[in-house]
């Protein structure tokens, strides 16, 4: 569904991503793991067009690297960005309405979608008219996911949904992702919490220093000692590639 070929991202003279290639098949959960500063967010920003990137991005058989972010969203690429980035000064409901921006000519469809996601996240329905900035971290993450789903994506990208959340809340969020996948959603999940991410993913890529250093089926990677070394270092660190 998504093919990224030789993608590089630079901020001024800083090369944050160095020619990364990944592939996400329809219906898969693919995890992208790696320590802070490994280039995970840069890869996602390159895929969604939030930063200029060199390389090819193909979605649903169509090159999208020349498109603006809203155009990519319209084709079905949605992202719940790092740190959630919900619209903290608007209500929960307004955040969801903003997610329906591209469907604004079809209010019934938006309303139906909103009802669907209130059913998926009953907590959000309880807080419907609350200002989003006053939600708890877990609720904010749910809102970020629901808001992204409001764009009716084919591919849902999540950037560190566990950030700053207690483990039990993270587990809750991840359970939701598994449910979404069962309903046919394709998910690209970026996580620092490798163990949790690998528990629900089909395949995974490990990013280090802006390059892919490891890839494979998730269960196998879960037992691979090189994962721990990628985070905490070790005798083998830097030989993984």
């Amino acid at each position: 569904m998504l093919t990224v070929a030789d993608l590089s991202v630079s901020y001024g003279p800083i090369r944050a991503l160095r020619g990364v290639s990944i592939r996400v098949g329809a219906g898969e959960i693919v995890a992208l793991i790696g320590a802070n500063g490994a280039g995970k967010s840069s890869l996602l920003r390159g895929i969604t067009g939030l930063v200029p990137a060199a390389g090819r991005v193909t979605f649903d058989g169509r090159p999208i690297d020349g498109l603006s972010t809203p155009q990519r969203v319209a084709l079905g690429v949605a992202m719940a960005p790092e740190g959630r980035q919900i619209f903290t000064d608007q209500t929960v409901h307004e955040n969801l309405l903003l997610g329906g921006h591209l469907l604004r000519s079809q209010p019934q469809r938006i309303a139906a979608n909103i009802d669907r996601f209130y059913a998926l996240f009953p907590r959000l329905l309880e807080r419907r008219d609350q200002i989003a900035g006053t939600l708890s971290g877990g609720e904010q993450q749910m809102l970020a996911i629901a808001r992204a789903l409001m764009t009716e994506p084919k591919l849902l990208i999540l950037d560190e949904p566990s950030l700053g959340l207690a483990p039990i809340i993270t587990a809750d969020i991840f359970r939701t992702l598994v449910g979404l996948r069962r309903d046919g959603m394709t998910i690209l999940l970026v996580e620092q919490m490798a163990n949790q991410a690998l528990a629900i993913a089909d395949r995974a890529y490990v990013l280090e220093g802006g390059s892919i250093v490891l890839e494979g089926a998730a269960p196998a990677l879960r037992r691979d000692p090189r994962i721990r070394e990628a985070y905490l270092g070790g005798d083998l660190a830097h030989h993984a590639a």
């Binding site: 959960i29 566990s162 483990p167 993270t170 587990a171 991840f174 359970r175 598994v178 449910g179 069962r182 620092q192 919490m193 490798a194 163990n195 949790q196 528990a199 629900i200 993913a201 089909d202 998730a218 269960p219 994962i227 721990r228 985070y231 905490l232």
Partner: peptide
């Protein structure tokens, strides 16, 4: 330290991919 970085080793895998 390991837990802080990688999450719990016995992290729950609800309806994990192995199942379906």
């Amino acid at each position: 330290v390991i837990e802080a970085y990688l999450g719990r080793e016995d992290s729950p895998a609800p309806d994990g991919p192995e199942v379906d």
